[in-house]
Amino acid sequence: MENLETLFQSFETGIRSSKAEKPKDYLKSIGLDYNELRIGFNSGQFHHNREQEFKDRFEALGVLKKSDAGVREETMMAYTVFGSYGLIFPLVDKENRIVNYFALRFRLETPKEEYLNDQGIYPAYPNPLTKRLYIAPTVMDCASLLQSKTLENKEAVIALHNGEILPQYQEAIKALHELEEIIIIKR
């Protein structure tokens, strides 16, 4: 999934752009800081002026989908972009590689949250020495708890995937041999 890693790096650069005022303002309004957390911004234009091979790789990953929207030239293909004009949070596998994205499309009339796929855990697989595990209902709740810096040594937090504990979560929890307590945070 090196392509998701590389793409996320461009999203991290995007949030730091002077043109990314609206995403920065939105983050500030919800109390999150992109300097404290891994958050990127997808302007929806990462595929513009790129070769077809590049676009094909991201189409295979589900980040791009062909669209029948009109384009200027007949030889051009229009695409719908996952998480377009949205804040992007990375989900990782056991090896800490980015395998999924969570997007918060904040500019819509009603903000929309979506996942690219069903893989990975946000923010990361808990350390095997974790004694207390917090399970947050959403990525946003998890990010808020992380940024609060209230977690102590040997504590970890993970976010549910659309309110569900997927098989990778069960696997991660079973690997916590020092685990003494699980705290489920409810909204």
Rank of each mutant, 00 (worst) to 15 (best):
E2Q: 15
L4F: 07
E5K: 13
T6L: 15
L7Q: 04
S10D: 11
F11D: 01
F11A: 01
T13E: 15
G14K: 03
S17C: 12
S17Y: 10
A20K: 00
P23K: 02
K24I: 08
K24G: 03
D25Q: 15
Y26D: 08
L27A: 05
L27I: 09
L27R: 01
I30W: 06
I30K: 06
G31C: 06
L32P: 03
D33M: 07
D33Y: 06
Y34F: 14
L37Y: 09
G40H: 04
S43W: 07
S43R: 12
N49L: 12
K55L: 13
K55I: 09
F58C: 00
A60M: 09
K65I: 03
K66R: 15
S67C: 09
A69L: 13
G70Y: 11
V71M: 10
E73W: 12
M76A: 14
Y79Q: 07
F89I: 05
F89D: 00
D93L: 07
E95F: 08
A103P: 02
A103W: 07
L104C: 06
L108K: 15
T110C: 02
P111M: 11
P111Y: 10
K112V: 13
K112T: 10
N117D: 12
Q119W: 11
I121A: 04
Y122H: 07
P123D: 03
A124I: 00
Y125L: 04
L129F: 14
I135K: 04
T138M: 08
V139Y: 02
M140F: 03
C142E: 10
S144Q: 14
S144M: 13
S144P: 00
L145A: 05
N153R: 14
E155W: 07
I158S: 05
I158Q: 01
N162W: 09
I165T: 11
I173Y: 02
I173P: 00
I173N: 06
A175S: 14
A175Y: 01
L176M: 11
E180W: 04
E181P: 05
I182H: 07
I183Y: 10
I184E: 12
I185T: 09
R187I: 10
